[in-house]
Design a protein around this nucleic acid. Structure first.
Lengths: 95, 95
DNA sequence: TAAAGTAGTTTATTTTATAAACCAAATATT
DNA sequence: AATATTTGGTTTATAAAATAAACTACTTTA
């Protein structure tokens, strides 16, 4: 029987965000936006959902006079991502 | 840059259906329903979408007096599934 | 023969994703 | 020095998708 796929992670944009954050210590809003080609609005909404779930943290600072939003994945987020990947493997494997 | 994930395949239930069909020659409506734990209504709708996309074929017969709906993946479906898997790999890999 | 089960489909509702509109501050333009 | 324009976002509205509930038709069982 196939396992449930965490619906919070089974979304293209949120998965892309998590994928980026799993591969670096932190990433800015602008960087994630460029990498994912997402609109700012969509990105903002999806980041919020990941924050609410406790999968990422968001820090808002200033770089000189420009706002700078930095995101990074939490321990909970890492675990959820890894569990998702494991669940997904069963769907993808073809003998 | 991350590739687009085929939205028709990036759905838990449709992915599960395709996963099952990638691993056997054909599967019945009832079998897929059991394996996926989907409701009949939801399964019916999602099968239709896969048929419309040309990813699977559905044959309706009778087994004695009971209806028997058999599904199997098409060549187009196999290709789409493999492309999806490849695109997804980039999201999952963590160095 | 009435009730319950099987194998589905259709339709309505809820959830989700996405885009459009908006806001505040900084920088560039005439 | 007012006025666009750009940057870095958020909020809200709309479109699309998933899901569940209701329904159909036929069969089996009590």
């Amino acid at each position: 029987m196939l396992k449930e796929l965490n619906p919070l992670l089974h979304s293209q944009l949120r998965l892309a965000i998590m994928s980026i954050l799993m591969n670096c210590e932190e990433a800015s809003f602008v960087f994630i936006k460029e990498q994912t080609q997402a609109t700012a609005g969509n990105l903002s909404v999806q980041l919020d959902k990941l924050v609410t779930a406790g999968y990422i943290t968001v820090e808002k600072k200033f770089q000189g006079k420009k706002p700078l939003t930095l995101c990074s994945v939490t321990e909970t987020g890492k675990e959820a991502f890894e569990e998702y990947v494991n669940a997904l493997r069963d769907y993808l494997k073809v003998e």
